[in-house]
């Protein structure tokens, strides 16, 4: 079991924007098919990058204001935050290798 976090509107600022380590946020929803495809990959990444990267999920239906603030129009969308700012965006159910390559370029 990795250290996959669950973010929401209340926790987002403290756990993501003020985090000292980079944070990968998976914007998702229960009804979203492509989100189900990518979910196991996110779980794997949370295990493989433990200690170097915080990984978590944010349900766009439960936290619409956060999703709106970052212009999320399709899900899954992965946003990588460093020092409170989004530095990478990955949209859709893309292969793990593509996600890892983009993450590694920032870590």
């Amino acid at each position: 079991m990795g250290s996959l976090a669950l973010f929401n509107e209340d926790s987002f600022e403290d756990e993501v924007l003020k985090s000292e380590v980079p944070v990968l946020v998976d914007f998702w929803a229960e009804w979203c098919g492509p989100c189900k495809v990518i979910a196991p990959i996110i779980e794997q990444i949370s295990i493989e990058y433990e200690g170097r990267l915080k990984v978590g999920k944010l349900n766009v239906d439960e936290s619409p204001q956060v999703a709106s603030k970052f212009g999320i129009r399709g899900i899954p969308t992965l946003l990588l935050f460093r020092q409170g700012k989004p530095v990478e965006q990955i949209i859709g159910a893309v292969p793990k290798a593509q996600i890892v390559a983009k993450l590694n370029s920032h870590l």
Binding site: W31, C32, G33, P34, R73, G74, I75, P76, G92, A93
Partner: peptide, 8 residues
């Protein structure tokens, strides 16, 4: 269609 594509 939204559930299938994940898009608005």
């Amino acid at each position: 269609w939204q559930a299938v594509t994940g898009s608005e």
